[in-house]
Design a protein around this nucleic acid. Structure first.
Lengths: 216, 216
DNA sequence: CTTTTTTGTTAGATAAATCTAACAAATTAA
DNA sequence: TTAATTTGTTAGATTTATCTAACAAAAAAG
């Protein structure tokens, strides 16, 4: 597989977890590549049996395509964990580096990282690390802005790894594992007031809350 | 710079240290790419001011090309050192991995590696690590098969990093830093008998001895 | 239920890096 | 010092991944 193909698969995989139907336009936007290019690439990937393509229909990965994507995501997340745990990086610095190292072709390299980290199950952003075959554990996370007033949740993961978002999470004083209780949802802009571990309270915009994943 | 251009520069740099004149054919052989392709690529690199090209003349890097090559070689050697020192790899396993990671575009990443290793000056094969600008310390190494009978040398570096060669060095029981005394040079095949640290003796083929670099 | 907008497709062009075939210069050998 | 061999060059084709322009289908709006 080429680097380009890997990036298409990964993008389709991620889009599928955000919305059930992935369109050619979604993929074009997410990769910042024009639609006709994407159109011909998806035909190529379909010919390789990695995704299902029918004219004017939403895209979907085949089992094989999903596993291939899973393998790349595994490498990405192992690297992120290694960068944080063994190399002293912050969680908001590792995405761009992992985005490149995930394409390295060397099983010994990733196996060694996995061992040095003691076979981690989650990356620094709380996302599950797929198994070596690319199978990914299904997680039952809730977006914080789908939570109910008065209920307490555990901050378990983030939906995106963009460094500007992660830095803002840091600014709010939030860390994975914190207990977040929804105090109030402000009607004007749907921002959410939470208490953090029963101590401080913070106001989180809808955009921020929508990327905070919690469990009960 | 593209990955391809980086590989051309690196190859020319390495060939220049082996022989004073680098031909288009040398480069084509070393990269395993056909001559006409190399011919057009060197014109392109010349247009970018990275090398000097005149029809039918040997190739040579410009100062700028040499520094660009040095920067890539720096990344390669830092990675090799990191893989050995921090990740538990053997010296014969790291070349292929470093060959890929050297193209990662992230100064923080390589700076961090450099710090974690305490600014190493040499890689696991005894090759000098260029400075951050790509300047490489000149080393005065002698090939073991240019040494004199009866003299003692220190095994300081290897000329190639091919894993089959490094494994054979291991088989001979040789390690960087060992004292090698040339006992005899066999006239039939020019193989060299050395004593290692005044203890065991080993017979090294001309091909092996030609890639063992020593200092006095 | 037409019209407009959005989304998707086809056709054909372009740039990068490669190739083969043909030829030309330089070097080596006879 | 001519002939043969090696090395280098030119021309043109190919593949991959991208693009723009033009058109077509589907979905949304009026």
């Amino acid at each position: 597989m080429t680097l380009t193909e890997e990036n298409y698969l990964k993008a389709i995989f991620h889009l599928s977890t955000e919305k059930q139907d992935v369109s050619v336009l979604d993929l074009a936007n997410s990769l910042e590549i024009k639609m006709p290019t994407v159109n011909s690439m998806v035909k190529k990937l379909a010919a390789k049996g990695l995704l299902i393509y029918e004219k004017y229909r939403p895209l979907s990965l085949t089992e094989s395509g999903r596993l291939e994507a899973g393998v790349i995501i595994r490498k990405h997340r192992l690297v992120e964990m290694f960068l944080v745990e063994k190399m002293g990086f912050q969680w908001d610095e590792v995405h761009e580096i992992a985005e490149q190292i995930e394409h390295i072709d060397s099983s010994v390299f990733f196996d060694r990282i996995n061992e040095l980290l003691n076979h981690p199950k989650f990356d620094p952003h709380g996302s599950p690390i797929p198994d070596p075959e690319g199978r990914i554990a299904s997680t039952e996370y809730l977006k914080l802005n789908d939570g109910q007033i008065g209920k307490e949740y555990i901050f378990t993961s983030v939906a995106i790894s963009q460094s500007s978002f992660l830095k803002q999470i840091n600014k709010h004083g939030l860390r994975l594992g914190d207990k977040l209780k929804i105090i109030e949802i402000l009607s004007f802009d749907k921002s959410i007031v939470v208490s953090i571990n029963g101590q401080s309270t913070e106001n989180l915009s809808g955009m921020v809350a929508g990327n905070i994943l919690v469990s009960e």
